[in-house]
Computed example of a mutant assay.
Amino acid sequence: MTRDRSSVEPGQRFGRLVAQEEVLQEAEEGPARRAVRCLCDCGTEVTILLQNLKHHSRSCGCTKRKDTMSEAFRNRGRRPRLFVAEPGMRFVRLTVLQEERKRMPNGAYVWVAHCQCDCGQETTATVNNLKNGQVQSCGCLHRERVAATNALRATHGLSDHPHYHRWRNMMGRCYDRRDPHYANWGARGISVCSEWHDPQTFVRDLDKLLGPCPEGHSLDRIDNDGNYEPGNVRWATPLTQRHNQRRAQNP
């Protein structure tokens, strides 16, 4: 059965309005017309003609009145928050210490979180930026990505060395957001030790620590939650790597 393309799905958003259900609205003359019962972000419930909702209406009228909080919400006090950065929560390299409501220079209030970075530095970021992934460290992660990009562009004469291709793949997984594997490495906070940002050092150390790669093996981290660094790498078969994969964890 083909779905009516003109219909509105429950939960569909139109500006500040969220559709709840379609209803029929009686008209003084003519047949009943299709309408949608909506909940505005200010807390007001309103019924709007379907054609108006799709082309014009974007709120219950609160934006025109410059009143973005209904009487029902006023009676309850401050609008309930949808996301709270609680102490101990982690966002890539940042651990939340505490959050507070802060007034900005323009007079608006925002929630900010004071965080401890894995590198030891403390930093402050808005809760929205933490939640959306726009802030992931005190700035050290960005500096590492810049260094990694510069290293990739450097001329070093190692293009034909087998370890160099492993180095490029490793750096891409950890620092290149466009890499298809970034979500399971860099986005989780997995990084490469600073010494190995230099491909020559990486190739030399890998030759010294592990030697040539055996057939059917590839580079693997011993501690799957650890970084690429001396003492945490080995040659492993695909089966060993599958057994070493992180287990699914509750968010």
Rank of each mutant, 00 (worst) to 15 (best):
N106K: 00
S194Q: 14
C42L: 00
A236R: 09
Q98P: 01
R173Y: 04
T47C: 00
D223H: 07
P87D: 05
T124V: 15
T155D: 12
N150I: 05
K64G: 11
S159Q: 14
E99S: 15
Q249C: 05
Q134T: 14
T124C: 12
V18R: 14
R101G: 06
K54P: 00
A151T: 08
R145E: 15
P162Y: 03
Q25M: 12
Q25P: 02
R16H: 13
Q245Y: 01
G15V: 00
P80G: 08
D207E: 15
N129F: 05
R33L: 14
T95G: 04
Q200W: 05
S194N: 11
Q200I: 11
Q241E: 07
N184S: 12
S7Y: 04
Q25C: 04
Y109A: 07
L49R: 02
C213L: 03
L219A: 07
M89L: 09
H165T: 12
K66S: 14
S7C: 08
F14A: 10
N52H: 13
R103N: 03
R5Y: 07
C193K: 09
P230W: 04
R3M: 10
H114K: 03
P251K: 11
R221K: 09
E99C: 06
G172E: 12
S70N: 10
T2H: 06
N128C: 06
V127I: 13
